[in-house]
Every structure is written in structure tokens, then in C-alpha cells.
Design a protein around this nucleic acid. Structure first.
Lengths: 107, 107
DNA sequence: TCACAATATGTAGCTAAACAACGTATCAGA
DNA sequence: TCTGATACGTTGTTTAGCTACATATTGTGA
């Protein structure tokens, strides 16, 4: 899967993956890889700027910790982030319906 | 629907909409508007460059005509365009499955 | 008749997101 | 000791879509 297709939807995926449990950047990358069945492999040049953007927008909150000698910045959803995730889910539903309908896939 | 979400998928939509019948730019715009239930409204600054790009890539072929005093450039799918459309459909199917799965929408 | 909407094409310049290619550092195991 | 996994990040580039603008014809309603 061309990762660039994600454009505009990556935020939703990140929010979704940290929803249940706070995760650090590398963990988010791994979670997306696993949950996509290996289809998603985020370059760090994509992931870390996205995380900073989401924090700047108030959807994520981060805190540093050290786990077995390695520093981690752990991200968790804010209240606004939960709202945004719900909105993104809704937007995805509409979007996929529209595109699927026109492409004749899934409609 | 935020039109920018289309990024990366617009080509597929255009190819899909000219598949059955050749259309001119304005007609493509209207077809997408109608087939999306009004959700898609393409700015001309998006549509026309996209058409030129698709022609340059060999997926579309264009020809001029005049209909009731107005000049039209009509686009039709090439053989390569048909192949590309099939590939895009496949890619969409995989993409929507992955995203839907992670967002918990449609999976 | 005069203005406005619809039809129809296009370009120039901007923005933002994703990417490739770096750079830094720790730890485990061969 | 050296490689691979873990973990953070930045710089500079590319590119697609957007806004705003420019042009022209035809149909319509005031």
C-alpha cells in the first residue's frame, strides 16, 4: 500500500491507535503496522511531525519517561482528541461511502 | 466533505467517471458532484491540472469539439487508463479495508 | 437591454502533508 | 565488537490540491 494515500487520514489512525492505551511514537508505528496487517510502515519523517502537529492542535498530550534506559515520549488522547476522533470516524464513513460508491467498490 | 481528503484518490474518481462515457472537464465535475450526492465540488484549479496530469501519464486522451457555441475538450480513457483504473480500484479496496479496520468503521 | 447565472476553459502562486535521507543514542545478543 | 532493535528527532524536497484570478459564450429574468 502506497503510504501517501494516507494523506488526510493519518491523523485519524494515530488518534484511533492511542485511544485505548497511551503509546509512544515507536509504539504507535508498530501498532499501526500490526493492525494494518503489515500494510502501513510509517517513516519517522512522517510520524514525528504528525505527532507534534496533533499535540499542537490539542488532540494529544505527551509526557517523557525512561524505560530500560531509553527515553520515551508517551502520547495520550485529550478530551478534544476524543471529540476529534469521533468526528474523523464520521468523516471517514462518509468519505469511504462516497469514494466506494463512485468506484463501484463496496457499494 | 473536506475535498482535500481526496488527495491521492481523485485520479481514481476521474478515471471511474469517464470509464463508461467520454466527458469534458465541466461534465466530469458535474458527474462527480452528482454521483457523490453533492459531497464533491471540485475547484477548477484542482480539476484541470489533474486532467492534464492524467493525460500526460497516458491514462486519458483528449479532443476538442464545439457544442452549441462552446468549446469542449473531451476526455476518454486509454487502454492504459483502464488498467490504471483497475489497479486503483484494487488499491482503494485494500486501503479502505485497512483504514476502516483500524478506525473500527466498516470492520 | 442589461445584468447575472450557467456553461466552459484555463493559469499563477500558495500551502501543507508526506517523504527520503540524514543524525543521535541505548541496549541485547551473537 | 558489531549488528539489529529500540527510540528520538530534523532538514529539505516534492507534489497535489486550493484560492484567486482571467477569459469567453449562451441563456434567462428583471
Amino acid at each position: 500500500m502506497k503510504a501517501d494515500e494516507l494523506r488526510g487520514h493519518l491523523d485519524a489512525l494515530i488518534l484511533a491507535v492511542v485511544k485505548d492505551a497511551p503509546l509512544h511514537g515507536y509504539g504507535i508505528s508498530e501498532a499501526l503496522h500490526a493492525q494494518s496487517g503489515g500494510a502501513i510502515e510509517l517513516p519517522t519523517g512522517t510520524l514525528y511531525p504528525a505527532l507534534r502537529r496533533l499535540e499542537r492542535l490539542g488532540y494529544l498530550r505527551s509526557s517523557w519517561s525512561t524505560v530500560s534506559g531509553r527515553k520515551r515520549r508517551t502520547y495520550e488522547l485529550t478530551r478534544a482528541g476524543r471529540g476529534q476522533l469521533a468526528a474523523q470516524r464520521q468523516a471517514w464513513s462518509e468519505f469511504s461511502g462516497v469514494v466506494g460508491g463512485i468506484l463501484g467498490t463496496g457499494a
